[in-house]
Write a protein that binds this DNA or RNA. Structure first.
Lengths: 202, 202
DNA sequence: TGGAGAGGAGAACGTTCGGTCTACTTGGAC
DNA sequence: GTCCAAGTAGACCGAACGTTCTCCTCTCCA
């Protein structure tokens, strides 16, 4: 049986330790490179405990991505909750992304990295990646639509394209120029998106 | 001893079969997911033959990336050899990239995928990725410098950022919109790069 | 003619993989 | 006081991993 909480309805400590350790190791070292042994040793639980909480490694990976998804969703939701102007909302999201890239320990996009290791579209891990990406594209498209101006979809695709480039490569060279390039690109995109709005789409 | 050619100086057939098979499998299924067994079986050679030509799997991976590097370098060199105007050269390079993304079997950037699996900067595979990326950035920067206009380096970083985004995600959804977004982004970048040139840098 | 290189065939190495199992301890709820 | 879930400890499974080994054949070239 899958155990989420203990008798008193609290989240199991072993489970959260397991998930936190798996998240850290999967993210920093890659998924296939990290074995079950490493996870249980560093989480200081036993193998039996891991398999009491998760059916197998694949499920643990999906939970890892769900945790990454929740973390980023939390940031975006907090920004949306400010109910700022649409363009400022997008600037704040871009800033949050750049802040992540700049932060120590940044190792690229957890989802793009996972997709690189699980190319099979039928695999649950790959599906989790696609689900996250669709959510993000939808949010950006919606906020851009609120901003008015040129059609939202192409602009959103451009926003996401630059985000993906920055996230994929922010750990392969000095992150600062990459963040600058990304933020400037977003700013130019937003300028164009609204400036050309009263002259019709390009 | 590492064998590159047979007695008559020809490239060994077994070696090229090995490398071609490894390239195909590593690219389409990921590196860690493909074992030595799969490679020797599908290349129709024996394990002993593989280890006669390559010291180990890591070296095979590096050769795989070198082959990918040579393939793309060949395309870029052919474009450079046309000695077209700088902007047209960059358009042609962008077109070649888009063509790759559109082509069946596209599975993302071999180098970004490899970096996702080998995050350790000290690892030979990771180093091979960085070397390729530095070469590409240098080429783009040089051609952009020839074009004149705004400073070449920021523009080149923007070009590479969009390329990376397109390459990383071109296999995660319909490639056509991604190519369109990428090519339009490059066109806008080039327009801006030369148009603003006589008014000074932004 | 013979030696050496290239390759085939396949057993075997030790390690690690993901996953299962049994036996024991602990601590709170009824 | 009893029961049961949660967790510990660690042996164990078959399979796959990367790697090495021996032995055989073929085909050049000296």
């Amino acid at each position: 049986m899958l155990v989420m909480t203990n008798v008193r309805g609290q989240a199991s400590e072993a489970r959260s330790k397991l998930l936190a350790t798996a998240t850290r190791l999967f993210y920093t070292e890659g998924i296939h490179s990290v074995g079950i042994d490493r996870i249980v040793v560093e989480a200081k639980v036993t193998r039996a405990t891991l398999y009491r909480h998760f059916p197998g490694k694949d499920d643990l990976i999906v939970y890892y991505l769900q945790e990454a998804d929740h973390a980023f969703r939390g940031q975006v939701d907090a920004i949306l909750a400010r109910k700022a102007a649409a363009l400022d909302t997008l600037r704040a999201i871009a800033e949050a992304i750049a802040e992540g890239i700049r932060s120590p320990g940044f190792r690229g996009c957890a989802f793009l990295n996972a997709a690189a290791e699980y190319p099979d579209p039928a695999h649950p891990v790959h599906k989790a990646v696609l689900a996250h990406r669709e959510w993000f594209s939808r949010v950006i498209t919606e906020v851009l639509a609120q901003a008015g101006g040129t059609p939202a979809e192409p602009a959103a695709r451009c926003f996401v394209l630059m985000r993906d480039g920055a996230m994929a490569t922010g750990c392969l060279s000095d992150p600062e120029p990459i963040c600058e390039t990304f933020l400037q690109g977003v700013e130019d995109l937003l300028q164009f998106h609204v400036t050309v709005s009263r002259r019709g789409p390009r």
